[in-house]
Computed example of a mutant assay.
Amino acid sequence: MQIIKDKQFGGERPLFASHDLHIDNVLITEGESAIKECSNIKATNCRFEGNYPFWHVHGFEIENCYFAVGGRSALWYCDHLKMRDTVIDAPKMFREMSHLELKNVTMNDADEVFWRCDNIRIENLKMHGGTYPFMFSHDVYVDGLESDSKYVFQYARNIEVHNAKITTKDAFWEVDNVTVYDSELNGEYLGWHSRNLRLVNCHITGEQPLCYAHDLILENCTFGEDCDRAFEYSTLNADIKGSIANIKNPMSGRIVADKIGSITIDENIKQPADCVIEERK
């Protein structure tokens, strides 16, 4: 493998079509597409300031690197990436990618990241700001996520999340086959229009959670005091620890809680309107 160390590159496509290359302590300055149409690339201790540095790259590692704001849209149309111990200040990262492994990564502008990606494995990711991370992505495993980005995991499928703290609005909308374990989910309108969403040992806050959900499962979950009008028009099986403030018009299934503040069943409930709602005895 060729090694390039302690160098600086700028302009248009300075390392275009490189293969079997290790760059260490390299600065990519203003310009575009520094490492495009490449394979078997390793980047360590590098700084990326120019646009679109990694496009159409197949098989690469990024370790202890930094993507400045100017390095936007840095990783598109790539596959088989391993990234660790990296800080990203640039938006619109990870688009149309496959087979990603991330560990100890911080994204300070998580706007439109992980769009239409698949086979992602993540350990310890921090996402701040931005909208719609993970939209249209599938086959994702996450262990350790801290996020305050808006609209997380919309239109995603086959997702497994552990040990997350997600503070957002409209998370997990229109998802398919998603399980979340041991996590804190804060924000309005959680999980609307979801299919096969399962929450295990989770704490949920925010108004109108889990409405229009199909085949929703809750196991050993707790709710904040602000969770009113929950489960409207949903089909579900929910085991709730502690109390829930208000349940409104669930369609079918069973809800059991230690304490239920109030239940709203009105003329707008949808058939079959046979959901069993009860306090634990």
Rank of each mutant, 00 (worst) to 15 (best):
residue 232 E to D: 09
residue 180 V to G: 02
residue 34 A to R: 13
residue 62 I to C: 14
residue 127 M to F: 03
residue 86 T to I: 12
residue 33 S to C: 12
residue 176 D to E: 13
residue 59 G to E: 06
residue 266 D to G: 10
residue 52 Y to R: 10
residue 257 A to N: 05
residue 72 R to F: 07
residue 183 S to A: 02
residue 104 N to R: 04
residue 229 R to D: 15
residue 91 P to T: 08
residue 16 F to D: 15
residue 81 L to I: 06
residue 183 S to P: 06
residue 154 Q to D: 04
residue 129 G to H: 04
residue 209 P to T: 12
residue 101 E to G: 02
residue 45 N to M: 09
residue 80 H to R: 11
residue 89 D to Y: 13
residue 142 V to E: 03
residue 239 D to A: 00
residue 149 S to P: 05
residue 254 R to G: 02
residue 173 W to E: 01
residue 215 D to G: 10
residue 223 F to E: 03
residue 19 H to Q: 12
residue 160 E to V: 08
residue 134 F to K: 00
residue 236 L to P: 09
residue 181 Y to W: 01
residue 97 M to Y: 00
residue 47 R to P: 06
residue 165 K to T: 11
residue 62 I to D: 12
residue 103 K to H: 15
residue 134 F to N: 00
residue 32 E to Y: 15
residue 252 S to H: 08
residue 210 L to M: 15
residue 211 C to H: 08
residue 105 V to S: 00
residue 39 S to T: 00
residue 126 K to Y: 10
residue 244 I to P: 01
residue 214 H to L: 12
residue 281 K to N: 15
residue 234 S to R: 05
residue 233 Y to Q: 08
residue 38 C to P: 14
residue 35 I to W: 08
residue 87 V to R: 10
residue 183 S to G: 04
residue 66 Y to K: 15
residue 15 L to F: 13
residue 200 V to F: 01
residue 263 I to W: 07
residue 125 L to A: 03
residue 235 T to N: 08
residue 256 V to N: 05
residue 172 F to T: 00
residue 274 D to W: 11
residue 139 D to I: 05
residue 55 W to D: 03
residue 86 T to A: 10
residue 76 W to F: 11
residue 203 H to L: 08
